[in-house]
């Protein structure tokens, strides 16, 4: 008998007291979200709580804000994933941008339809050494979560492969207000499980020394977030 059968048989034997037609209830009376008002403010506050650098900008200020952040950081080579809106890098010298060609799904497709989103493995890839040589990475994000101060990347356009936001020491991330939800349950509703997902809450950190949190271990040691405000309703 295979170990597969052995284990499955053991499980079934262990559960002889459980009726096979049992309906085991799960109480779902927890909150879908804990805040309704001030979601964007809370998102910024919680990002800052865990030592992210946060700026809030209007859409029209975004390109300048990105350029300023790059200059402030002194970054000369910034990785740019495929599908990044060209307007975002308008203020950067062409030589600053280090493009990576891989994208999960067609660049113009934002429908999050898993059957339509197929990776393009043939796209040109930066090597790990090239990523390591870069000063930073500029990406968008799929979802922001206010209650936890979390950014989720789903490898979609403008986000790229997981390695892009891991190896460089500085992550500059643009989060649009309309992508920010209040809670973890709301975030999961928006995300597509099949995609590679990275949830980021502040720069890399550890609590392994005397259970006190210190920032900066293996992931990017600086997380800088540009929150793009909703355009005012006319």
């Amino acid at each position: 008998m295979s170990s597969r059968e052995v284990i499955l048989n053991r499980v079934r034997r262990a559960l002889t007291d459980v009726p096979r037609d049992e309906v085991f209830p799960v109480p779902r009376d927890y909150a879908r979200a804990h805040v309704v008002e001030g979601v964007l403010e809370l998102f910024a506050e919680h990002l800052r709580d865990y030592r992210a650098v946060v700026h809030e900008v209007a859409e029209s200020e975004l390109a300048d804000a990105i350029a300023e952040a790059v200059v402030r950081r002194g970054a000369r080579r910034v990785v740019t994933p495929a599908g990044l809106p060209p307007a975002w890098t308008a203020g950067l010298a062409a030589a600053t941008c280090v493009p990576d060609g891989w994208v999960y799904g067609p660049i113009d497709d934002l429908s999050d339809d898993p059957t339509n989103n197929r990776p393009k493995p043939a796209a040109p890839h930066l090597t790990i050494a090239e990523l390591d040589a870069a000063d930073g990475v500029l990406t968008g994000a799929a979802v922001g979560i206010a209650e936890t101060g979390t950014i989720v990347l789903d490898a979609g356009p403008g986000q790229g492969r997981r390695a892009l936001t891991l190896v460089p020491d500085w992550h500059l991330c643009v989060v649009r207000a309309e992508h920010v939800v209040a809670s973890v349950p709301q975030a999961l509703e928006r995300l597509v499980p099949g995609r590679p997902l990275t949830w980021i809450s502040g720069p890399s950190a550890t609590s392994d020394i005397e259970l006190d949190r210190v920032e900066g271990v293996h992931g990017p040691r600086t997380l800088e977030v540009l929150i793009v405000r909703r355009p005012p309703v006319v």
Partner: peptide, 18 residues
């Protein structure tokens, strides 16, 4: 913490990533 710094979620193999 409200959330740990990093959570990774992956499903099988993603061509070109990981």
């Amino acid at each position: 913490e409200r959330m740990n710094p990093y959570t990774s979620m992956w499903t099988g193999v993603t061509p070109g990533d990981g």
